[in-house]
Nucleic acid binder design. Structure first.
Length: 644
DNA sequence: GAGTTTGAAACT
DNA sequence: CAGTTTCAAACTC
């Protein structure tokens, strides 16, 4: 076996943060001898939350293409020939044991397709470098295991379980690994989920959100509850297994951790995906800084325990926002940094030394204010409905804490009055007449105002009527009733009522230079949002190549609800959204919208089976949708206001 | 907390 | 209806 092969087999469980939402995915990434196969599961019944059935998406993707590949003689020429593929097929369908209703907004994380970045000669560079040199990490410490033991395999269960042990530094104790990659320690924080892999005799995996509040990701905990590796055909060929882990982060404070557990003698891992409570704050901070809604905080997994820190060089792949901090493995790390204008940060580490695991970290966070709540149940959403998500608009009862000084709180300037609410002691208004003791006066003024404008007190944000009666239709998007008239804020600040309400601008808006991340007002192809997608290929801490590509946001005729962003980088099919904080209350609609199309595209529909295997789409909580097709990566944003 | 910016509301 | 003024929230320092 070549010494410089990254690894022969690596199975990566890609937990799409939105996996619990309709139309989202679960991905299993198989890395073998210079190739990366992405096996993805998609819900066959995208709208079913409780009893979703997971189906293997036929278009497994192939990723790597390096000079070595030809030399290495891949074990199989086609993806379908991959033992992992067969294995995965045997696992399908996956049935969640219990999938709680997720409020909505999970950042979508999915690792789609084959990072074309891996085709880079630079990557090849490090692949052939010592950094990627394979070796037996366990050495003498693992009696009975040697390179000749390549054909000695774990049980399927163990194999899979180990594949989830990215942060397993104590694999030696298990004696199940033939090759060592264990970089990340167990204490590494992973955000967004809390997953537990256990119950080996049950289904392959199930995700169970412990919380389903609308805040979704931010406050949800997921459990990977069932884990049932099938008997394996694949094990016989799993010559090398690397620990792989996915970390999902919300902003810069990862809060997900892997926890080792013992189950029936088989070591298991608990994936803790826990949304960060600071996300909201971060989102707000981002907003304050004027950053675009989809801009993300770069995050990377941190080692919490120095004793567990990897001291070996590693290969890393970072998918980060350009302005985010990237915490590299260490100076000796080698990696690819992919900077994207989203909230997703992905790191893939592979080491050539003992305890140098292959780890994939995904940082996901949302950006922007939360959108209006799901208004599908009603034509109108009230002002409170919409603004209650705003962290800054603390409420006390029905009244906002106004600070009116001159209006006597009897004009629409006063938010309390505008909301048909009386001011309370929490307000800091002066000469306030908007009190119960002045009820008559208040009513009189209200009538006066309504005489001029009957809709003066009507909710500012309304839900678009649903089209048709299909209950499976996605929730109707919301829009600002009158629209905004922003000139300076480009609809990216709360000065903009649309943005503040978390809805996109509509044709009713008269804004200028609209960059509303929730959707642009017209059907132009470009919403004026540009972002830079950067790929930095780093070898041993030095950037040897940087490829950047400007991406633009444009509308999609096929998906009126989305304003897609296109980029030539096919690395990932899903990027977690961005900043729209995870307070998305409408995300499911995106997921569902996507799922329908995806089911068609991915499951053989549309006669596109002959296309590139990289046609993968997914959605994110922020409503952002990323899809890859023939090497193009597309990000989509909701454009809820285009139904006018 | 004070000052500035912004855009909706109110006014002309 | 358009332009201007007023106002208070949002934002910045």
């Amino acid at each position: 076996m070549r010494q410089n092969a990254i690894s022969d087999h690596t199975i990566v469980l890609m937990l799409d943060q939105s996996a619990l939402l309709p139309g989202t995915f679960l991905s299993l990434l198989h890395i073998c001898t210079g190739c990366i196969f992405n096996h993805r599961y998609v819900k066959s019944n995208p709208h079913e939350v409780e009893n979703a059935t997971w189906m293997l998406m036929p278009r497994t993707t192939l990723v790597m293409d390096t000079p070595e590949r030809n030399q290495i003689n891949p074990p199989f020429s086609r993806v379908e020939d991959s033992p992992v593929f067969s294995f995965i097929n045997s696992l399908s369908p996956i049935k969640p044991v219990k999938s709680a209703q997720v409020g909505q907004t999970f950042s979508s994380l999915s690792f789609p397709s084959p990072p074309r970045a891996f085709t880079s000669s630079n990557l090849t560079c490090f692949k052939e470098s010592k950094v990627l040199r394979r070796h037996n990490p366990f050495g003498a410490s693992r009696p009975g295991l040697s390179s000749e033991d390549g054909n000695k395999f774990q049980t399927s269960e163990e194999a899979i379980a180990d594949s989830f042990h990215p942060y397993n530094n104590s694999r030696e104790s298990q004696g199940n690994f033939h090759d060592g990659i264990s970089v990340v320690d167990d204490s590494i924080a992973l955000p967004a989920f809390k997953g537990i892999m256990q119950k080996p005799d049950s289904h392959f995996m199930s995700l169970v959100p412990e919380s389903s509040i609308y805040n979704g990701l931010r406050d949800s905990k997921l459990k990977i509850e069932d884990y049932r590796p099938e008997p394996l055909a694949i094990t016989g060929q799993m010559q090398d297994k690397h620990c792989v882990a996915m970390t999902s982060k919300i902003k810069e404070k990862p809060d997900v951790e892997l926890v080792s557990v013992m189950n029936r003698g088989t070591r298991r891992r608990c994936l803790n995906f826990e949304t960060d409570s600071v996300q909201r704050k971060n989102s707000d901070d981002n907003l304050k800084s004027g950053s675009l809604g989809y801009e993300k905080q770069l995050v990377s997994a941190k080692r919490k325990s120095s004793s567990q820190q990897c001291t070996m060089p590693a290969v890393g792949l970072h998918l980060n926002a350009p302005d985010k901090e990237v915490i590299s493995n260490d100076e000796s790390s080698c990696g690819i940094h992919l900077n994207v204008p989203s909230c997703t940060s992905v790191q893939i580490y592979t080491s050539y030394e003992h305890q140098e695991p292959l780890a994939i970290g995904v940082d996901s966070s949302n950006i922007g204010p939360e959108p209006a709540k799901d208004n599908s149940h009603a034509l109108y959403s009230t002002v409170n409905d919409v603004s209650q998500n705003s962290p800054k608009k603390k409420r006390h009862g029905d009244c906002k804490r106004c600070k009116c000084k001159k209006s006597k709180c009897l004009k629409l300037y006063c938010e309390c009055f505008a909301a048909r609410a009386y001011c309370t002691g929490n307000c800091s208004c002066k000469d306030c007449y908007n009190k119960l003791v002045h009820k008559d006066k208040v009513i009189q003024v209200r009538k006066q105002i309504e005489s001029r404008n009957p809709l003066a007190f009507a909710p500012k944000v309304i839900a678009e009527p649903e089209i048709g009666n299909d209950p499976n239709k996605t929730p109707a998007p919301a829009r600002h009733k009158r629209g905004c008239n922003c000139k300076q804020s480009v609809c990216l600040k709360k000065y903009c009522e649309c943005f503040q309400a978390g809805v996109g601008c509509s044709l009713s808006c008269r804004c200028e230079g609209c960059k509303n991340t929730f959707g642009r007002k017209d059907g132009a192809n470009s919403i004026g949002v540009e972002a830079q997608l950067e790929v930095e290929i780093e070898v041993c801490g030095k950037v040897v190549e940087k490829v950047s590509q400007r991406i633009e946001v444009q509308n999609s005729d096929n998906h009126p609800d989305f304003v897609p962003i296109s980029t030539p980088f096919p690395l990932f099919s899903s990027l977690s959204e961005g900043k729209p904080n995870t307070r998305w209350s409408q995300p499911p609609k995106h997921s569902q919208a996507v799922s329908d199309q995806e089911m068609t595209d991915v499951l053989g529909g549309g006669g596109r089976s002959d296309r590139s295997p990289m046609t993968i789409k997914t959605s994110s909580p922020s409503g952002k949708r990323i899809s890859t097709s023939k090497g193009d990566l597309t990000l989509s944003f909701p454009s809820p206001n285009r139904h006018q």
